[in-house]
């Protein structure tokens, strides 16, 4: 493995960078198509929602604390919306939940 690690890294890093850089550099203008603009407007919300659930439930030591973190995140994001406070709040609740169920 040792011999190839550098090439492995180069291939993986180059692939990932190309995926990221091509649209950013090739799409230089505002897209006029209403459909495409709408599509791109929805992309972040759908992607982040798909990535968050159900993965968050299994991101901790137990589903119970995972659900506790998820619900806390939902509530905090609804009433507050500050990135830092929502993230920390969810972590604290997970920590406490795991202490309680142990």
């Amino acid at each position: 493995m040792e011999n190839n690690t550098v090439i492995y890294f180069a291939v993986a890093a180059a692939t990932i960078y190309l995926i990221r850089v091509l649209p950013m550099t090739l799409i230089r203008k505002d897209i006029n198509s209403r459909f495409l603009r709408s599509f791109l407007y929805y992309v972040p919300y759908v992607t982040l929602a798909v990535m968050t659930f159900p993965a968050i439930v299994s991101a901790t030591g137990s589903p119970v604390s995972g659900w506790a973190g998820f619900i806390t995140g939902l509530v905090l994001a609804y009433v507050d919306g500050n990135l830092f406070r929502v993230a920390i709040g969810s972590c604290v609740v997970v920590y406490v939940a795991e202490l309680l169920i142990r």
């Binding site: 995972g66 995140g73 994001a77 969810s90 972590c91 997970v94 795991e98």
Partner: peptide
């Protein structure tokens, strides 16, 4: 374990 939800918490703070 607790830090495991930090990133998801941030996602929620973006979409909610």
């Amino acid at each position: 374990n607790a830090l495991g939800v930090a990133l998801y918490g941030m996602f929620l703070a973006i979409i909610i």
